[in-house]
Design a protein around this nucleic acid. Structure first.
Length: 252
DNA sequence: AACATATGCAACCGCTGGCAC
DNA sequence: TGTGCCAGCGGTTGCATATGT
């Protein structure tokens, strides 16, 4: 398929946003919304492409963005959700209010991946050294209050045994399997899920979610509706939270 | 103090799926 | 039904800053 270029390169500014540009974008969106990103920069008088505007708004300027370090709870949630969902950053972000997919992706690649790798090697030791948080760059004046600095989080591993397979099928399997692949290198013996867990939990969950969950297409693109898709996502989140709880209890 | 290297984050690039015509 | 446009997503890059030597 022939595609239109992302944006006309000529005359459009790139690179870091200035505070003025930020204010212009915020003011325009507050006044007119962002129904059409492509037309927005022209309407707002910005020399940026719509894509850049959208990214800036979503990742930095949205009023509900939570700035500041991730808490250990958030990091743990990301680890667990990534184990479930793989690199579906937007889906993971949807589970973490105020956090963006880009931010989560960055945190994963800079902190959490290493943390998992080191914990798999040393059983939860050797958290990466943290350097002081650098001050925000452009548009810091627009930032809301930042959240409390993250407490140094203990090394933690969340993984399933590599050979573990699911009894469900199709795209749900794909999702889970891909997440297993993604975390395969960091798998450890710390958290194992056996067949009895799955049979029990799935039986429980199928009851609570009504019929159909055990069948295919749970994650497929042809899911019936967004709401059902959310339900399905809830299912898997719930499933893993339960798994986590069970594991925690078993360690007591 | 100066330089080299590592780290973290904002932004960009290219692809995909959905939708309208 | 095919085509083109658009928004959204994930991977990657580039740069500023921190840290080490």
């Amino acid at each position: 398929m022939v595609r239109a270029p992302c944006c006309e390169k000529m005359g459009l500014k790139r690179g870091p946003w200035t505070a003025d540009e930020d204010m212009t974008l915020v003011a325009h969106i507050e006044q007119h919304g962002h129904s059409n990103w492509r037309a927005l920069p022209k309407q707002a008088g910005l020399l940026r492409c719509g894509k850049s505007c959208r990214l800036r708004w979503i990742n930095y300027l949205r009023p509900d963005i939570k700035r500041g370090n991730f808490t250990s709870e958030e990091e743990d949630a990301i680890i667990q959700l990534h184990a479930m969902l793989g690199n579906r950053w937007s889906t993971i972000a949807a589970r973490l209010p105020g956090r963006t997919d880009n931010e989560i992706k960055n945190v994963w690649h800079t902190h959490l991946k290493k943390r998992l790798a080191s914990s798999s090697k040393t059983s939860g030791q050797a958290a990466p050294k943290h350097k002081a948080k650098k001050p925000p760059m452009a548009a810091s004046a627009l930032e809301g209050p930042t959240s409390e600095p993250a407490s140094s989080s203990p090394g933690q591993s969340f993984s399933m045994s590599p050979g573990q397979s699911l009894s469900t099928s199709s795209s749900a399997d794909y999702s889970m399997a891909s997440s297993l692949e993604n975390t395969g290198s960091s798998s450890s013996e710390e958290f194992q899920i056996d067949d009895s867990f799955w049979s029990e939990t799935l039986a429980m969950s199928v009851d609570s979610f009504g019929s159909g969950m055990e069948t295919s297409d749970t994650f497929g693109a042809d899911s019936a509706s967004p709401s059902s898709s959310n339900d399905e996502m809830d299912f898997w989140v719930t499933l893993f939270m339960q798994a986590s709880d069970i594991q925690s209890l078993s360690q007591i």
